[in-house]
Design a binder for these strands. Sequence first.
DNA 1: GGCCTGTCGAACACGCTGTACAACAGAGTG
DNA 2: CACTCTGTTGTACAGCGTGTTCGACAGGCC
Lengths: 219, 219
Amino acid sequence: MLGRVLPTLARMPSITRSGPSGADRRAAVEAQILAAVGRLLAQGSTYTQISVQRILDEAGIARSTFYAHFRDKSEILSKLAETFRQRLYQFTANWSPEGPDGGLAGLENAFRQIIAFHREHFPVLATFAEVAAYDASVQDFYNSELRDFEANVVGKLRDEQAERRTPADVEAAAAARVIVWGGTRAIEQHIRADDGTGDHSFAAELARIWWYGAFRRPS
Amino acid sequence: MLGRVLPTLARMPSITRSGPSGADRRAAVEAQILAAVGRLLAQGSTYTQISVQRILDEAGIARSTFYAHFRDKSEILSKLAETFRQRLYQFTANWSPEGPDGGLAGLENAFRQIIAFHREHFPVLATFAEVAAYDASVQDFYNSELRDFEANVVGKLRDEQAERRTPADVEAAAAARVIVWGGTRAIEQHIRADDGTGDHSFAAELARIWWYGAFRRPS
DNA sequence: GGCCTGTCGAACACGCTGTACAACAGAGTG
DNA sequence: CACTCTGTTGTACAGCGTGTTCGACAGGCC
């Protein structure tokens, strides 16, 4: 540390750090790292291109401290992921094809919320998709999240088929795959391409495509 | 080279290489590199994780030779991309909503071909999507390919709306985005999850979702 | 005061990247 | 055969990033 050479400047590098206030220093370090990654992503960098070194500089944390908390760079994403778990798809999980808040109107509303959520947390959510494409540990959590969502949609389609509201020849598994994986990617792309003014009409389109394309497909 | 030390083994490492047959050695080296990458991807490795060194070992090419042909690792993908340009979306570009080979049946057939093509070249196509997420040069080519496709779909939807076959309240731009970006991702995911037996029914679902969800959405 | 826990900075080994360069091989030419 | 030209080869090198190790140190606690 500089302190050994320049005692008067001993705590200079600490100014950017929040003071250690007790036994929760551990949580503080992790929070600083996650916040720093969030800042770097918000600045437009790509997670893959950001080096650990760059994150440490941004966070004001020592290299050795980082490795005492995280096994490697992907573990940052794992911990970041816990923040998001289940929050993403609560909107559609709560939706049902029939009922007061259900149907096409309810679906459109659910998509509005999903799009708003994606837009709010875009850098981080895009990073999950980016890294899941090549990193097994991130893939585990991200894909399992989407698989849960997919299973939920399959269940809803099957229920609707049992009630004769959705045609029996709709292949629930295939349709759910298109809705979930395709929908997620489409939303991501929409947010990249649109400044937000088109969010409502995009939600309307998504809702109608899934509604008339699957749930209420003409038979 | 070994030849300097062990004359009798001079050309040993050349056995794996195709003999230089003229002035097309340049093309031969590039082909060897592309083939090696294809082999490594087929073995299940992820492009991001494969090092240049690993590619050179696999191809039996010297490091310095590689950098005489490629600026860096992403330029491999750029050259690989030229092989695929326009081949991917010729199927739907040729499709039209009306006519003998058109309509729902034609769309389903187009998707069968697209899925077969994706399955045949899966490692490479998945790599384009993987790397486009963080590498600008790959993104340029990959996204522009999909944007062309998207523009094509927008044009078809608008034409159909002009003919009153597609409802006027379908937002062509939003619908096309869902169809193209979502569809591509859904196909990729389908191929990861399905062994091929479900290809036909998946093509049928895709075709019906886009058909009844957009082109022939009930108004 | 002394102990404990956790952070810090420095150093290290390792692997990968991209460049530079001299040696070399093959083809073509006279 | 000698000679040139082009393109490949092996090696060496600088630079950067990673993950580990370790002694110094600071703050909280007894």
